[in-house]
Nucleic acid binder design. Structure first.
Lengths: 267, 267
DNA sequence: CATTGACTCTCCCCTTAGGTCATGCTGTAT
DNA sequence: ATACAGCATGACCTAAGGGGAGAGTCAATG
């Protein structure tokens, strides 16, 4: 039997951490002296503690770890580990992207001496957009669930024998932008007018093209809004994006292209 | 002038976030109606908000960002960006390591069906260690500051014309392990007995070799402690590590080797 | 003018994974 | 018996907001 101090030295974790793990039920001492409250740990708990440390490095939350360790099915365990590996790989790719973004920013900064320089390079103009015949799916959804809902639309297209015309986009109806859950309508352009959900009437829009990953899309929004204000227009309806070049064209995120439209009227 | 709602839609951040940024002084509306408390933002603040979002992606804390944006010197700004890029690259390398560790773990798990299998592969035995003639530097230090203190020792070796014998290690005196700040003594073996700080007398130790990055070193500690208990020995003194193969031998972290020693006596 | 509905305000509590005192009790060695 | 190391609990703190309650405000409509 080991006291907290001994146990903490062996496992290389702080006593506070052990107190905490006891409190949340992740690692409960085998014995607690009822009169003094002293905690005593057993040999075999060293193993558990080390495993906890490992899983923590793998990026699991303590809650996840508790569930994992209490779960006896080997398959589930293996599944969760695999899944976590994929998550880490994904995060790594994301980080790669951020680094390249930062590098580009730095270059731009050194060239122009303006820390916001990159943002002024949007070409913006006002056009009358053509009508778009689309099927649509409007829902409260998070930005990350786009994939799920899009696949729903494509499934439906297959079922109803619709022909895509290459148009893909999203309309943002929401008043306030919320990363996790917003009122968003995904649209896919189709040929069959009669079977489509609706025709989005052409209208006057301020438009620009955003090149690069979606993480910096809001730069385009900012540029557009500034332009609209400065050129005597007023914002008039839900903005939308069309995804012109994306990962589905097997392009790297730096080469993606997104058109951003803001419906406007002359002030 | 824009209301919070409008501003939040344009910049794609939540109203809550804007409230928060106002509160911490990171982005203060150009006007606040004194009677109603309503916030009004200006055009030019869109730019600032977007830049904040960017810097946040780059991994800066909001406090950092506030300082950065208020700092007018271009050089400082560029320096911080460069520095942050290096930090991100470092984190990326670390993540790479974790992924490879997880992959190895998974393989081991699938082979043995034992989630702790990897941990049982330490070869442990008891040896009488030889005397070690060392110069030493004992301090409260964090694990990450090893580099600083080691370089101090090497500097001193150069100054006093000491000859290293290839031994490098650290003794852990502390009762409780604390990542940030522990009582650790760094030691470097030298040839000149008379000029050395001390001779660490050889004595009975349980020993094992840990292969791989330092993040999983505590596995070795755990294995040793379990072994000591199970084989009728008692722990008797401050444990220490010797770094046998490290990054200074230009090896990848997977190939590093560390010897871990626990002084023991027969029970 | 009054009402409605959308918008906004502040205030308070909650999250993760513990860290940092402060104060008081316990165990053991001398 | 006493000193001192070790241990306990509890309160408060972190970063970056999210969620909700309850109340006030703005603009358009009847």
């Amino acid at each position: 039997m080991l006291t907290v101090g001994e146990f903490s030295r062996i496992c290389q974790v702080s006593i506070k951490t052990l107190h905490y793990y006891d409190r949340i039920g992740l690692l409960v001492p085998i014995k607690v002296d009822p009169s003094s409250g002293y905690r005593y740990y057993g040999q075999q708990q060293v193993e558990r503690m080390l495993l906890i440390g490992r899983l923590k490095r793998y990026g699991f939350s303590l809650e996840d770890i508790r569930v994992l360790l209490d779960c006896k099915e080997e398959g589930v365990l293996r599944g969760r580990l695999c899944q976590q590996r994929e998550k880490l790989k994904f995060k790594q790719r994301e980080m790669e992207l951020v680094i390249s973004e930062l590098s580009a920013h730095l270059q731009n900064f050194e060239r122009t001496g303006d820390i916001m320089g990159y943002q002024k390079e949007y070409d913006i103009d006002v056009t009358n957009t053509p009508d778009m015949v689309v099927i649509a799916s409007r829902q409260m959804m998070g930005v990350k669930e786009f994939g799920n809902y899009y696949s729903g639309l494509y499934e439906r297209m297959a079922r109803e024998h619709l022909t895509p015309d290459g148009l893909r986009g999203a309309v943002y109806y929401d008043q306030e932008f919320n990363h996790e859950c917003s009122d968003i309508e995904l649209i896919v352009g189709v040929r069959e007018t009669e079977k489509a959900d609706k025709t989005m009437k052409g209208r006057l829009c301020a438009k620009t093209i955003h090149k690069g990953p979606y993480s910096s899309l809001s730069d385009a929004y900012g540029a557009l809004v500034a332009w609209i204000e400065n050129h005597g227009y007023a914002w008039d309806g839900a903005p939308y994006e069309l995804y012109v070049k994306t990962q589905f064209d097997s392009l790297a995120p730096e080469d993606w292209e997104t058109e951003v439209y803001f419906p406007v009227r002359k002030k």
